[in-house]
C-alpha cells in the first residue's frame, strides 16, 4: 500500500472517529458504548462514554469495572494503540497540530502511566473525578461548548480547563503527538495491549537495510525497525509508507507471527534479529 493511500485511509478512519464522537448531532442520546479513545462524555454531542471518566466514577461508586475493562481489553486486543493513531478525535487534533516531528525526551513517555495511576488514586482517595477537572479534552469538548450554552461560567474551574487545554495545545504544536506521547491515560491503558493486539506492524527483517528512514517518519519518535510495536507505537503506519525497501507492513496478524516483536539476540542489545546496524 502506498504512503498516500495509507494516509488517506487513516484520515478517513479518523473522520469516522470524529463522527462517532459527535454523533449526538443526529439527536441520538447517550448510548451504552465505551468510546475507544479519550473523548469527554460531557460533550453536548457525545453519544459514548469516556473510559477514563467512567473509570473514576466506578472507583468512587465501588463498582468492579467488568463492563469497562472488558470493553477496553477487547478494543486493546484488537487494535491496541491503533485507536490513538486511527480513531481518537483528540489524537486527530494532535496530528493536525503536529508541525514538528521532534523526538524530544522519549524518557518522559512513562509519565502517562503516572497520570493514569494518579487518576485512579485520586478517585479512590478523594472520591472525586479529579482528572476530568484538568482534562484538556474536557476543556475543549465540554467546558467551551457549555460556556457557549450558558451553563458554564467564567470561573476558576473553567479557567483551569482553559489553562490545561492551552498548555497541551502549545505542547502539541511544539512536539508531535505531545499529549499521546506523554500524558494520555487512555493511551497508557491501550499501550498495555500493544504487544498482543491483532492489528499492528510487521517487520520483514530480510528487507530492512537499517537506514532509519522509518524513525524519521514516526510521529511518536520511535525507531520502528528497532522498537516494532513498542508500547508507544500508535500504529499510524507513517513508517510503513516511508520505508522504500518495503520492510514494514501494517495490518491484522496474529501477535506471534514473525516480525511482530523485536527479537533480542544475545550480544546485540535491542537490535532486532537479522536487521543490520544503523547506517
Amino acid at each position: 500500500m502506498t504512503a498516500g493511500k495509507l494516509r488517506r485511509l487513516r484520515r478517513g478512519s479518523q473522520g469516522l472517529g470524529l463522527l462517532l464522537g459527535l454523533f449526538g448531532f443526529t439527536g441520538i442520546g447517550m448510548t451504552h458504548l465505551i468510546f475507544p479513545g479519550l473523548h469527554c462524555y460531557a460533550c453536548p454531542l457525545a453519544v459514548t462514554v469516556c473510559p477514563i471518566g467512567l473509570l473514576q466514577n466506578l472507583i468512587i461508586n465501588g463498582t468492579v469495572p467488568l463492563y469497562l475493562f472488558g470493553a477496553v481489553a477487547a478494543y486493546g486486543l484488537v487494535l491496541g494503540r491503533g485507536f490513538c493513531g486511527w480513531f481518537c478525535p483528540f489524537g486527530t487534533l494532535n496530528d493536525l497540530l503536529s508541525f514538528r516531528k521532534a523526538r524530544f525526551f522519549n524518557a518522559l513517555s512513562p509519565l502517562k502511566f503516572m497520570v493514569l495511576l494518579g487518576t485512579v488514586v485520586a478517585a479512590w482517595r478523594f472520591a472525586d473525578t479529579m482528572f476530568c477537572k484538568l482534562c484538556p479534552a474536557g476543556g475543549l469538548e465540554a467546558s467551551l461548548p457549555y460556556f457557549g450554552l450558558g451553563v458554564a461560567k467564567l470561573n476558576t474551574p473553567f479557567l483551569v480547563h482553559m489553562g490545561t487545554l492551552g498548555a497541551v495545545l502549545v505542547g502539541m504544536v511544539l512536539v508531535s503527538r505531545f499529549w499521546c506521547r506523554y500524558l494520555c491515560p487512555m493511551g497508557a491503558l491501550f499501550s498495555l495491549f500493544n504487544r498482543l493486539s491483532l492489528f499492528g506492524l510487521r517487520l520483514k527483517a530480510g528487507k530492512c537495510a537499517g537506514c532509519g528512514v522509518c524513525a524519521r517518519a514516526c510521529p511518536m519518535g520511535l525507531k520502528p525497525h528497532r522498537q516494532i510495536n513498542n508500547t508507544d507505537c500508535i500504529k499510524c503506519g507513517e513508517c510503513v509508507g516511508a520505508c522504500a525497501a518495503g520492510a514494514l507492513e501494517i495490518g491484522f496478524f496474529l501477535p506471534g507471527k514473525e516480525g511482530r516483536v523485536p527479537v533480542r539476540a544475545l550480544g546485540v542489545g535491542a537490535r532486532p534479529h537479522r536487521v543490520p546496524a544503523d547506517q
Partner: peptide, 25 residues
C-alpha cells in the same frame, strides 16, 4: 458487565452532566 447492569450504569453516568464533576464549576 452487561448482565450486571453495568452498561446501563455507564449510560446513566454518561447521560448526566454533573456540573462540578467534569470541572464546569
Amino acid at each position: 458487565g452487561v448482565y450486571l447492569g453495568q452498561a446501563r450504569q455507564a449510560q446513566l453516568i454518561g447521560a448526566v452532566l454533573c456540573t462540578s464533576c467534569v470541572g464546569i464549576e
